[in-house]
């Protein structure tokens, strides 16, 4: 399962705006408009590298995520999308 690491907390400016959240990335100057669960995922990632499985365990403490395997697949997809946007970085895989 791949490992992802979020940008340092001060690399992004996050502003909630009704149903959306704005994320300004200082490094690129790009503004992202995202909806849940993206802000929740970024917040739960903290500063260390995490897998989708670990993130689901963290998120489950505050949110009702439904079946574990399904939640892991959804979070893994979102992490890959965030990596494609440059908001998180894939830093390897513990299985490799």
């Amino acid at each position: 399962m791949p490992l992802f690491r979020a940008e340092a907390a001060d690399a992004l400016i996050t502003r909630p705006l009704d149903a959306m959240t704005l994320i300004y990335q200082r490094r690129s100057g790009i503004t992202h408009m995202v909806a849940e669960p993206i802000p929740e995922i970024l917040s739960a990632m903290g500063s260390e590298a995490v897998t989708a499985k670990l993130l689901v365990a963290r998120l489950a403490k505050n949110f009702d995520l439904g079946p574990q395997k399904q939640a892991e697949a959804i979070v893994a997809d979102r992490l890959q999308e965030l990596a494609d946007l440059g908001l998180v970085e894939q830093v390897g895989s513990p299985d490799a």
Partner: peptide, 10 residues
């Protein structure tokens, strides 16, 4: 809503 306003104003 502010989110739609933000998108249009940018």
């Amino acid at each position: 809503p502010p989110s739609e306003t933000f998108m249009r104003l940018t």
